[in-house]
Design a protein around this nucleic acid. Structure first.
Length: 775
DNA sequence: CTCAACGTGATG
DNA sequence: CATCACGTTGAG
């Protein structure tokens, strides 16, 4: 990244001067801001500036070249005045600098030298978010005053001193204190927070963040369920039933579990035997959960406290899959590389103090979740939001549909429904369909059932889910920490109750976990902190299927990122462009992406994001995806400054392309032929514009598809005739030609093809008009 | 040393 | 408030 463009210096200087002359009459920054500290944090001297972790998704990414800050950079031709990191590269877990030392013993963090989690914590450097002091917890001889570990930032806590002094939250926190979740790199909104309502101390800190942004609730839009999805694969429960169903997912007990105390967790039937043995990292396991995984807790809390009417419904509308994923999101922050993991934790921290008390003797520090200090990287957040908003706006325009969308009013609606709740509202996916404004949009995509005669195991058309309205104002997008997926997450062995270690090593457990379904994995993740961590191993989540999931929530998105799947199925979901874009940018290794039935608005995220490793792209039945859109999808990035961006097709490595049901013509096919040299499987079924000429193109001399194509699906392409079969004879690698339900293809034609091919490449008719190479 | 970019003050 | 600007810190 450190592209050195020193040659620009002169230009920079002069430019800078000019600019200053123009914009800043008085360069009066006499005071070096980084040195002179505001009085508010004079208590303990200068803060150490944090630095990139270099490991998180964001850090691993390259500069987008498009954001505000990138554009400012000299290497992108900007003046270089702002000196800010690319918004997509904002580290989500900034660490203390290597040079940081304990104020007491003057030594660096020593956690690496220790095995025991607890030791690790005691010997790692912790920076107080209030007084900024950096110490080894062990060096503080305060016995029972507990520090409050901040989950959002590695090595960050409220030290016992400050915590004890009763300082709280923002008031005491230095103004510049940066929380990871504030970073644009983690732009998802948080879904935590209900429990925080009862959290006296923290509510002080957190409420403001919420209250400052009560106006729009992007989530409500996101959670709005699409109209009646009724695919066979996933029964769509009635709202009232969903909660129950969802519970079934894990176990009947779960519910009680969550309603009640988490200690009962070990009752989960599926593993109860083992569980008894496992050292309950109990409170940890749960409370450790990352913010985004707290919905269930949250519900428990709400119910327990009886504060919010209607809390019962909270999860009711949650989609089956969203529940699955969300619950599985309950990952302790500890799975990040930063090992404050060892730190003991408590959950909802000071909820009326009950938590802490109940727990009896606790380790020194509790964990507390905090809402990000919004003030802090506000700028960056906004930068990102604006970028996003910009694209969304453009998109909205370009996709202007007959019916108008009224995001504002849409977003208001839920508020009335859930008065109490900024927070609740966002947790509820369930505005009733009718509240969705009856947008014709979804209706227009009601494909007649007859169009799905084939037993594709692919998505078949149904009603489209309603796309989430993009939040009218991005400002409200709160941040959500996403931590990189753990790689072989420690520890190596499972701690048992008696202090011993389980005989099986992690990798053996992993083999076992490998046999579990995702549901079961989610179940396991609630067992203990260790299991939680292990079960989030991305090896266990290579494929994530959210097909027809009515509501893609931020929690799910972050869960996906953490698991870094190779294959992601978002078909027939209402994912938004913003969400998809966000995802893609964070899934650099994605191989398979299924977006069938999504809106072009969403799919267009692919135009601006790059997924170089994508092998399979399924965009069948994507609303509004026609030639023009296909062009956008396939054209190289528009910003082609030399040496800056890859000017090859973003989808150049796609081997399997599914375009069923699209109104595309040969124009698109030409592009595809040119841009996807590796294309091997092509699904053009239900493409009414596809005809013999299209096949001619695909198989023409000089095209790569001629040799690369192995399977082609032209079923229900009524303009394709027997003549196409002649073209296929030129295909060197073709193994399967699906012409089922092509009215103009005759059985005789197929048989003629078989006969003629039999000399060189024997084919057979697997089904009527389905030709397949034998052997 | 250079480069990146954090954190915060100044400005509009 | 949002945005710009920049001294300085931190990494290499």
């Amino acid at each position: 990244m450190a592209l050195s463009l020193s040659g620009d210096d002169e230009e920079y200087d002069s430019d800078s001067e000019q600019q200053r002359a123009a914009n800043r009459p008085k360069p009066k920054m006499a005071t070096p801001s980084a040195v002179k500290l505001p009085s508010s944090r004079s208590s303990s001297g200068a803060r150490r500036r944090r630095t990139r972790c270099r490991k998180c998704e964001a850090c691993m990414r390259t500069e987008c070249g498009e954001c505000h800050f990138c554009k400012d950079m000299k290497k992108f031709g900007g003046p270089g005045r702002m000196k800010q990191s690319c918004i997509m590269r904002q580290c989500i877990a900034p660490v203390l600098p290597h040079t940081a030392v304990c104020v007491v013993c003057k030594e660096a963090g020593k956690e690496d030298t220790l095995e025991e989690e607890e030791d690790k914590f005691n010997f790692m450097l912790m920076e107080c978010s209030i007084c900024n002091e950096i110490v080894h917890p062990n060096c503080l001889k305060v016995s029972d005053a507990s520090g409050v570990v901040n989950d959002e930032l590695p090595n960050c806590w409220e030290c016992p001193k400050c915590n004890h002094a009763g300082k709280s939250g923002k008031q005491k926190r230095g103004p510049g204190f940066k929380y990871a979740s504030n970073l644009p790199g983690s732009l998802l909104r948080e879904q935590k927070s209900m429990k925080e309502e009862g959290d006296t101390s923290s509510s002080v800190k957190r409420r403001p963040d919420r209250e400052e942004t009560p106006r729009h609730r992007p989530e409500e839009a996101l959670h709005r369920p699409p109209p009646m999805l009724s695919p066979g694969s996933i029964p769509r429960p009635r709202l009232e039933d969903k909660l129950r169903k969802k519970r079934k997912l894990f176990d009947e007990e779960e519910e009680d579990d969550f309603r009640g105390r988490k200690q009962e967790r070990s009752e989960e039937p599926c593993f109860s035997k083992i569980l008894q043995q496992i050292k309950m990292e109990e409170d940890d396991a749960y409370e450790d959960d990352d913010d985004d995984g707290r919905e269930l807790h949250f519900r428990g809390f709400v119910e327990r406290n009886g504060r919010l009417g209607g809390a019962e419904d909270l999860a009711d509308d949650r989609d089956y899959k969203s529940d699955l994923l969300n619950s599985s999101l309950k990952m302790p922050i500890v799975d990040s590389d930063h090992s404050h993991c060892s730190s003991p934790q408590a959950g909802p921290s000071s909820e009326g103090g009950s938590e802490t008390q109940e727990k009896g003797p606790r380790p020194k520090a509790r964990r507390k979740r905090r809402l990000p200090n919004k003030e802090l990287s506000r700028e960056l957040s906004k930068a990102l939001n604006q970028e996003i908003q910009k694209t969304e706006d453009c998109l909205a325009n370009e996709n202007r549909q007959p019916l108008k969308v009224e995001p504002e009013s849409e977003n208001e609606e839920p508020k009335r429904l859930f008065h109490n709740s900024n927070d609740i509202g966002e947790q509820r996916p369930h505005l009733k369909t009718k509240e969705m404004n009856g947008t014709p949009w979804e209706l227009r995509h009601f494909y007649p059932s007859q169009i799905t005669p084939l037993g594709f195991n692919r998505s078949t058309p149904t009603t489209r889910p309603v796309p989430p309205r993009s939040p009218p104002k991005c400002v409200q997008m709160e941040r959500h920490v996403i931590r990189p997926p753990p790689i072989s997450p420690p520890p190596d062995r499972l701690p048992l109750k008696d202090g011993k270690m389980h005989v099986l090593q992690r990798e053996v457990w992993m083999k076992i976990f490998n046999h579990l379904t995702h549901q079961e994995l989610c179940c396991c993740m609630r067992v203990s902190k260790t299991w939680n961590r292990w079960c989030c191993d991305k090896r266990l989540w290579t494929k994530i299927d959210l097909n027809r999931c009515t509501s893609i929530t931020p929690l799910m998105l972050s869960g996906i990122i953490r698991r870094q799947p190779l294959s992601l199925d978002l078909s027939w979901t209402n994912i938004s462009k913003k969400q998809l874009s966000w995802l893609i940018n964070r899934l650099p290794g994605l191989r398979v992406l299924k977006l069938s039935g999504c809106s072009w608005a969403a799919v267009s995220a692919l135009c601006t994001s790059s997924c170089p490793l994508l092998r399979t792209l399924d965009v069948q039945w994507v609303e509004g995806l026609k030639d023009a859109q296909m062009r956008d999808l396939l054209s190289p990035p528009t910003d082609n400054r030399p040496g800056q961006l890859d000017n090859r097709c973003k989808l150049r490595n796609v081997e399997d392309l599914r375009l069923a049901g699209l109104d595309i013509t040969d124009t698109s096919l030409r592009l595809i032929i040119r841009q996807m040299p590796l294309l091997s499987r092509l699904d053009l079924s239900y493409c009414n514009h596809v005809n013999d000429q299209s096949v001619n193109l695909l198989t023409a001399a000089g095209t790569t598809t001629r040799d690369s194509l192995t399977e082609i699906n032209l079923s229900v392409c009524n303009r394709v005739t027997d003549h196409s079969l002649n073209f296929f004879k030129r295909c060197g690698s073709i193994c399967q030609i699906d012409l089922r339900f092509c009215k103009q293809v005759t059985k005789a034609g197929c048989e003629r093809f078989l006969a003629e091919m039999s000399v060189s490449v024997p084919f057979r008719l697997k089904e009527d008009k389905l030709l397949q190479k034998t052997s």
